[in-house]
Design a protein around this nucleic acid. Structure first.
Length: 519
RNA sequence: GCCCCCUUCGUCUAGUGGCCCAGGACAUUGGAUUCUCAGUCCAAAGACAGGGGUUCGACUCCCCUAGGGGGUACCA
C-alpha cells in the first residue's frame, strides 16, 4: 500500500511552494491507489492552531487535494496533530537511549561552543567530544549533582557511508563522519522535528516520503534513527524547489516587496487588488499576494488551472502535452518524470493556464463562478433570480475570452448599473462625444432608428447601423465609438451589437439621451 | 569552512550516444483580421555554463572549473 503524507505547520497561509509538494504527494498516492495523509506539524504549540490551520485546509480543499486521513476526517493512525503525540516521541527518545543509539548529554551550550570554536581555529570539522555524555546512571547522577540538565543526542556513527536511492536525485552518498550528534530531545523534554517526523512516518505507515529538496541533507540523521529503532526505511523523493520569479532562490512569502519589483508580479497584484476592493475583500499584503494560494481563490482563478500549472512546475509528461485536468494528472503522474532542478514561479504562465481553462469552462459553470463577484460588488441581488442569471450568461457569452478570471466580470459592471447612475470614463467621453464633431448629431439621429428597431437583437442592430452609416455617407467609426461611450460609459467593451441587445432598447435610448444631454 | 544538490531559449520544459546546425509552451517582436478591447491566424528572434577527456559520433557518459541553491541549530 502506497502511503504519502504532507505535514504543514499551521502558519496561517498556504504557500505556493508547499502546495506543490502536497500536490505531488497527493498525485502519487492517487496514481497508485494509495492513501494521502495530512499531518499537522504544530509542535511549536502556537495558541491558535485551528485559526492558523483553516486557510491551509481551505486551500487544499479548494484545489481538490483531499486527504484520506488527517484533520476533520480522522483515520486509523491518529491523532494527526503532532502536538498530541508527544509521548510517542519521548518514548522513542527513551528507546533510542536504551538501544545505545542516543545518549543523555549534560554539556552546557557554552561548553559546546568552546569545542566548536576550537575546531574552527584548527580548521577541522567539529566533532563533539562526548565529554558530558552520561554512559551510566552514575554519570548522570554526578552531572546532575553539578546542577546540569541534559538533552538527548544521537550517537552518530563516525565512519562509513550511507547510500540513499532517491527517486528523483538518484543515488546519493553521505559520509557518516560528517554528521553531528544531533539533538533529538530538548532539555525541557520536548522533542525535535526530525525525531517526531521519523516516529510519525513509521506509525502512520508512510511508504514514500515526498518532500522538498531542503530535507535531503537531513535524511541521514533520520535514517540513522529509523534503523536504530528497527523501523522500515521508506522510499524517498526529494522535490526541487519552487523558486522566485526569474531566479533559483527558494520562493518565500517574506520577500514579497522584492517580487513586487517584477513587473508581471506587480501587475497581477494590482489586478487582484482592484477586484478585491470592488468586492470588499481584505487586501492585506500578508495574505493577499500571489505566493499564497488564497490569493487565487479570492480573485477568481480556477482551481484546475492552478493545479495544472503547479503540476508542470517540475513534472512533465512529454514534449507537447500541457493541458491537464486533475484526472489526467492522476492518470499520468510518476516520480521518474519529475525533474531535478529548481523551477521558478512565473505568474504570467500561470495566467496563461488560467486563460485556457477558462476558455474551456462550460457556460453554466462560468455563470455560477462569476455570480458571487457581482453579488459581493452589489451589482446583482444576493439570491439572484433566473432572469439575472440569464442576463449574466448573456454577458458572459458576449464577453468570450475577455473574462480571464472570475473577478473580471466586474469590468462589465455597465450591464448591471442603473441607467441614470452609469459612470463615464471622462477621457473617452471627451474624445468620442464632447469633442467629436459630428458624433452627437449622428447619435441623435441613430437613436430614432434604434427606437424602431425590431427585433432588438444583435443581427438586426448590426444591419440597422450599417444601413444607417451607408445612408448617411459616413464611416462606421464615426458613430460607433460615440454609441459605445453613450451606452456603456466606456471607450472599450464588448461587441457593440451584443452590448445593445443585452442592454435592451429602453436602456439604450435612455442612456443615449442622458449622454447627449450631458454634453 | 565542510557536506549535499542543481546547471538546455527570458521562463516552464522535451531530449537517456547518431532521429537535434536541439522540439513544444508562455512571454517578446513583426504582420493579418476587426467597431474598441479580448481573441484568432501567420511569421520572426531566442538555449545545450566553461574546459578537458571517452567515442567513428556527444545536450546525452567521465573528470575538473565556474555559477546557483540547500544543509550544517536545544528551527521546521
Amino acid at each position: 500500500m502506497i502511503r504519502t503524507r504532507f505535514a504543514p505547520s499551521p502558519t496561517g497561509y498556504l504557500h505556493i511552494g508547499g502546495v506543490r509538494t502536497a500536490l505531488f504527494c497527493w498525485l502519487f498516492a492517487q496514481r497508485n491507489a494509495g492513501k494521502f495523509i495530512l499531518r499537522i506539524d504544530d509542535t511549536d504549540q502556537e495558541r491558535n492552531v485551528q485559526d492558523a490551520l483553516k486557510p491551509i485546509l481551505d486551500g487544499l480543499k479548494w484545489l481538490g487535494i483531499d486527504w484520506d486521513e488527517g484533520p476533520e476526517v480522522g483515520g486509523p493512525f491518529g491523532p494527526y496533530y503532532q502536538s498530541q503525540r508527544t509521548e510517542l516521541y519521548q518514548a522513542a527518545a527513551e528507546e533510542l537511549i536504551r538501544r545505545g543509539a542516543a545518549y543523555r548529554d549534560y554539556a552546557t551550550p557554552e561548553e559546546l561552543q568552546v569545542e566548536r570554536d576550537a575546531a574552527q581555529a584548527e580548521k577541522r570539522d567539529f566533532v563533539y567530544s562526548r565529554r558530558w555524555m552520561a554512559e551510566t546512571p552514575a554519570d548522570a547522577a554526578r552531572f546532575e549533582a553539578e546542577g546540569r540538565t541534559f538533552v538527548v543526542r544521537l550517537r552518530m556513527p563516525r565512519e562509513g557511508t550511507l547510500t540513499i536511492d532517491d527517486h528523483i536525485r538518484g543515488r546519493v552518498e553521505f559520509q557518516w563522519a560528517r554528521e553531528q550528534d544531533h539533538v533529538v530531545q530538548r532539555a525541557d523534554g520536548s522533542c525535535l522535528y526530525h525525531l517526531a517526523n521519523v516516529v510519525d512516518d513509521h506509525a502512520m505507515r508512510i511508504s514514500h516520503v515526498i518532500r522538498a529538496e531542503e530535507h535531503l541533507s537531513n535524511t541521514p540523521r533520520q535514517i540513522f534513527m529509523i534503523e536504530a529503532l528497527g523501523y522500515e526505511r521508506p522510499e524517498y523523493a526529494h522535490l526541487p524547489f519552487v523558486a522566485e520569479p526569474g531566479s533559483k532562490v527558494k520562493l518565500s512569502k517574506r520577500k514579497l516587496d522584492k517580487y513586487l519589483k517584477d513587473r508581471d508580479f506587480a501587475k497581477l497584484v494590482e489586478h487582484g487588488r482592484q477586484i478585491a476592493q470592488a468586492i470588499g475583500a481584505e487586501t492585506k499584503l500578508d495574505e493577499f499576494n500571489p505566493v499564497v494560494v488564497d490569493f487565487y481563490r479570492e480573485v477568481g482563478f480556477l482551481p484546475d488551472a492552478v493545479v495544472n500549472y503547479l503540476a508542470l512546475l517540475g513534472w512533465s509528461l512529454d514534449d507537447k502535452t500541457e493541458h491537464f485536468m486533475p484526472s489526467d494528472l492522476v492518470k499520468h503522474f510518476s516520480l521518474d518524470r519529475v525533474n531535478n532542478s529548481p523551477a521558478s514561479f512565473d505568474p504570467v504562465k500561470l495566467q496563461a493556464f488560467q486563460d485556457r481553462h477558462m476558455q474551456q469552462l462550460p457556460m453554466a459553470q462560468k455563470t455560477v463562478m462569476v455570480l458571487p463577484y457581482l453579488q459581493r460588488a452589489q451589482l446583482v441581488p444576493a439570491p439572484a433570480g433566473a432572469d439575472v442569471e440569464a442576463k449574466v450568461t448573456r454577458v458572459l457569452e458576449a464577453a468570450g475570452d475577455r473574462i480571464k478570471i472570475a473577478g473580471d466580470v466586474l469590468d462589465f459592471a455597465e450591464f448591471f448599473t442603473a441607467d441614470d447612475e452609469l459612470p463615464y470614463d471622462e477621457k473617452a467621453f471627451d474624445k468620442r462625444i464632447a469633442k467629436a464633431a459630428d458624433a452627437p448629431a449622428l447619435l441623435a439621429k441613430f437613436r430614432e432608428v434604434l427606437a424602431g428597431c425590431d427585433p432588438f437583437d444583435a443581427p438586426t442592430l448590426d444591419a440597422a447601423l450599417h444601413q444607417f452609416v451607408e445612408a448617411e455617407g459616413v464611416g462606421i467609426g464615426q458613430i460607433i465609438h460615440a454609441l459605445r461611450v453613450a451606452t456603456t460609459g466606456k471607450g472599450v467593451g464588448l461587441g457593440m451589437f451584443d452590448t445593445m441587445a443585452i442592454l435592451g432598447r429602453q436602456s439604450c435610448l435612455t442612456r443615449i439621451d442622458r449622454a447627449l444631454a450631458r454634453k
